[in-house]
């Protein structure tokens, strides 16, 4: 049975295998760390690889190496400088992923996230996302009231529209636009989107869109003609 570890003040951990790790103060992890669960309330810096089942980050963390986590919950501010493999990811705070997040089951963003590549079966964004490379998902849903900037969004089922819940509606009347350079998918529904090119099988363009080019295969339904410059069938 592996040990538990709790850090209250300032500590340097050389890695190893643990059951539960809790950091209240500040910790530097120098080697590879394996743990059942880990919670960071203070600050932590990881210089080795991490294999953790449940990782909850409430403080400030920085990861230099590859991280593999089953459930990752971020409520603080974090930075990941290498690839991340995670099954379930929830972001309430602010986070920066500088490499790929891959083979993920579910990603939910309520806070702010800067990502480069994100691959997941289900992606739900209700916060702000800055994506410099590609979002790739089986199903992608974006609620537009915080605005986002995405270079490329691809997947099977893509929906971008304002959050219809009434209290959100009252709070922010003006839904912000989401800037997405290219969108490619099978079924696409867009509202409040600024885009250069949208390509797919079945495309529905709702109100408040500014789109340069729509290329569709089966059907295309445009509710506001002014928002689309050019439509082509392939």
């Amino acid at each position: 049975m592996a040990n538990n570890l709790t850090v209250f003040a300032d500590a340097t951990i050389h890695g190893g295998t643990y059951n539960k790790v809790r950091v209240f103060g500040s910790a530097d992890v120098l080697g590879d760390l394996t743990a059942q669960s880990m919670k960071v309330f203070g600050a932590a810096e990881y210089k080795g690889k991490c294999h953790i089942d449940t990782l909850k980050l409430y403080g400030a963390c920085e990861f230099e190496e590859y991280v593999e986590v089953k459930y990752l919950n971020i409520k603080g501010a974090c930075e990941f400088n290498d690839d991340v493999k995670v099954d379930l990811l929830k972001i309430y705070g602010a986070v920066e992923f500088n490499k790929t997040i891959f083979r993920c089951n579910e990603v939910k963003v309520y806070g702010q996230a800067t990502v480069s590549n994100l691959e997941a079966d289900y992606i739900y964004i209700n916060g702000h996302v800055d994506c410099s490379e590609q979002l790739n998902g089986e199903k992608i849903e974006i609620a537009t009231h915080q605005g986002s900037k995405i270079k490329e969004m691809v997947g099977t089922n893509i929906t971008v529209k304002p959050n219809r819940k009434w209290f959100v509606h009252v709070k922010s009347n003006t839904s912000k636009e989401v800037e997405i350079d290219t969108i490619e998918g099978d079924e696409i529904y867009l509202e409040n989107v600024v885009s250069k090119a949208v390509r797919g099988n079945k495309i529905t363009i709702g109100p408040n869109c500014k789109i340069d080019l729509v290329e569709y295969h089966e059907s295309c339904n445009i509710k506001d003609e002014n928002g689309v410059k050019q439509v082509e069938k392939y």
Binding site: R103, D121, N136, E138, V154, G155, T156, E184, G185, D186
Partner: peptide
């Protein structure tokens, strides 16, 4: 067009 697959399939395979 050549293979008859869709964007969704292509990107699903990339993801996997």
């Amino acid at each position: 067009i050549l293979t008859g697959i869709s964007y969704g399939q292509l990107y699903r395979w990339k993801r996997k």
